[in-house]
Amino acid sequence: MAVPVETRRPASSPRPPEGSRWTRDVIETRIFGVLRWVVIVGLVLVTLFPFYYMFILSIRPLDSLLRDPGSLVIPLAELDWGSYVSIMTPQEDGGQGFLRFMGNSALVALGTVLISLLVAIPGSYAISRLNFFGRRQVSALFLAVYLFPSILLAIPLFTFFTRLGLRGQLVALLIVYVAQVIPVTIYMLRNYFDTIPTSLEEAAALDGASRLGVLRRISLPLAMPAIISNGLFVFMIAWNEFLFALLFLVNTRPSWTVSLGLSQLAGSIEVPTTVLMAGSVILTLPIIIIFFAAERLLTEGLTAGAEKG
């Protein structure tokens, strides 16, 4: 108490000398230095453990799981890839037919990516570059759509496609997915177009290129990183989607997606947990591969608009 001046001295130099007195600054720095590693290790364990568990269950035989549910090591002695065979084999041959579900998921996801990009590239270009009546309102509309409860949207779409008799068709799902992802796609692409200087496009226009020519030859190549990351992002959304797949396809097993197939089979007692874990791995693996391949592109695209505010 009587030495405020002296205690302030060592703290006020940017780096207190080694072995200095136990000032508040030193204590806090030391505590947080240790705590930081505790937090990092803890978080890594918590985030990754379920995926590790998923994987080890998928390569264990069922009776080994029932005998020893607490085991955490990779069962080298009783390694068993049979679950993967069983989950991929077609239903007619006694398997679960996930190969077909993967085909369905891939078809819907790739279709969603293609159509949404085809529609959203011109749209986002227009919103970013051209001055037209209602531009602001359109942006606001898209944001509102993005934030809207999908359960609310599910009701009329369910009713509509039931009435058309299209429920149970992958096409119906495809259309709904495109409409769902378009607002995000436009938002992300527009942000990117906004960062590209217009001078190149203006130069091309002066040289006599048409508007579509400019879009195709100049803007599109420049926006390629954003377009690719956007395509991957949309693929992940469509591959992971569950609610609409459940509503539309639940009664037609041949057109189930992987997500739907796994959720439906998880409820039945006939399929062993280990086999379903193999299904989980198959469902998760493409997403993790895409994510790690394009992690940089994806995270930058997502947070691009966030740093401003």
């Binding site: 978080l43 890594v44 985030t47 990754l48 379920p50 995926f51 568990y53 998923m54 992940m236 591959w239 992971n240 569950f242 992987v258 997500s259 739907l260 796994l262 959720s263 998880a266 379903l276 874990m277 989980s280 791995v281 469902l283 998760t284 997403i287 993790i288 994510f291 790690f292 992690e295 995270t299």
Partner: peptide, 17 residues
């Protein structure tokens, strides 16, 4: 990057796990 996995992984797979 790995800390983002719970968010991007398919919801059906993680809930089942």
């Amino acid at each position: 990057a790995s800390m983002l996995i719970p968010y991007v992984a398919p919801i059906v797979a993680v809930t089942f796990t």
